[in-house]
């Protein structure tokens, strides 16, 4: 096996819209964060802006099938799309089985689409880091839309919604999802709600959702999230889903909220980069031994001294901004 990851060569090909190069650059930013700076230095800010859509919902609600269905329509309208499908890593094996792609074989060969699967854990710096970097690559590649699919369980998945401009939450009839709606605080994350598998019913969920959305004090944004029903197998309702997403997009653009969303997307990233930097600095300043000492004393009956001990350790650490001369 000869694996070629010569960055300069890849960038050259990438700029000629070569998907092989895109794929390998993703591998690099995913597995070797230290290469990211070098890679991103090849692009300037006049690069394309993509519109980012997040799709979430419990396992098996039809997220991938729906992404497939509405991507098809976007493609027919001449749009280009980059998809990121995040699947959970098994907490038991540490491995992942990425199955979203199977639902997208229909569109996978289209020249204007690129699909990449991602396992939610096991990345240095966390999943949101990898996803953010891939969105930047997709933007540089010139994608009109970026679609991020994640399973709506666990904090790490929700994090990704700090990146999306429009978040679509998918539910299905039955499965006691109505209870989950309330529990998961799902009512706060969605810009558009979809009740999929309408062939199996679901009117009751729509009614419930509508009521809850009415009750929730209208957010400052002035957007009242719509609820629509789809059958992603036959494509019923998919057009109106696209319409609603476009409505939301327009709403964001007109109200200048899009700028806010973008700002948030980068602020989130900056914060993450900072804490990772600080983490590295700390690693160099405070040794493993120091930390072990503290945890050992804690175990030997000093648990109430935990704040003191950490504080003491830090009394020796001094952060200083280098003066630019």
């Amino acid at each position: 096996m000869k694996r070629n990851y010569d960055i300069d060569l890849l960038i050259e090909k990438f700029k000629k819209k070569d998907k092989i190069a895109l794929a390998r650059l993703i591998t690099l930013v995913e597995n070797n964060p230290e290469t990211t700076t070098n890679i991103f230095n090849n692009f300037d800010s006049s690069e394309n802006d993509s519109y980012i859509i997040g799709i979430t919902g419990s396992p098996g609600v039809g997220k991938s099938t729906l992404v497939n269905a509405f991507s098809k329509i976007l493609l027919e309208n001449g749009k280009s799309i980059g998809i990121i499908s995040v699947d959970p890593t098994s907490p038991f094996t540490g491995g992942a089985f990425l199955g979203d792609r199977v639902r997208m074989t229909d569109i996978s060969l289209h020249p204007n689409i690129f699909i990449r699967s991602l396992a939610s854990r096991g990345y240095k710096g966390g999943i949101s880091r990898a996803v953010f970097d891939i969105t930047l690559l997709y933007e540089a590649f010139g994608m009109d839309f970026i679609i991020i699919e994640t399973v709506g369980v666990g904090q790490s998945e929700f994090d990704i919604y700090n990146l999306a401009y429009t978040t679509v939450v998918i539910m299905v009839p039955g499965y006691g999802d109505s209870i989950q709606i309330q529990k998961a605080g799902i009512i706060e994350v969605g810009d558009v709600y979809v009740v999929n598998k309408k062939d199996l019913g679901g009117e009751d969920i729509v009614v419930q959702m509508e009521m809850m959305l009415d009750d929730a004090t209208i957010t400052q944004s002035g957007w009242r999230a719509p609820v629509i029903m789809t059958n992603s197998i036959t494509g019923e309702g998919v057009n109106s889903l696209i319409e609603k997403i476009m409505d939301h997009k327009e709403h964001l653009e007109l109200s200048e909220l899009l700028k806010e969303k973008k700002k948030h997307r980068f602020a989130y990233k900056i914060e993450e980069l900072l804490s990772s930097k600080i983490g590295k600095v700390l690693e160099s300043l405070i040794s493993e031994d120091d930390l072990n000492k503290i945890s050992n004393s804690v175990l030997q009956g000093k648990k109430f001294k935990i704040y003191d001990m950490v504080h003491d350790l830090f009394s020796n650490v001094k952060f200083e901004m280098k003066k630019s001369d």
Binding site: T65, D87, N231, I233
Partner: peptide, 11 residues
């Protein structure tokens, strides 16, 4: 008429 169904995947 009915659309294509792909089986759910058990992981």
């Amino acid at each position: 008429v009915w659309g294509i169904w792909e089986p759910p995947i058990a992981i």
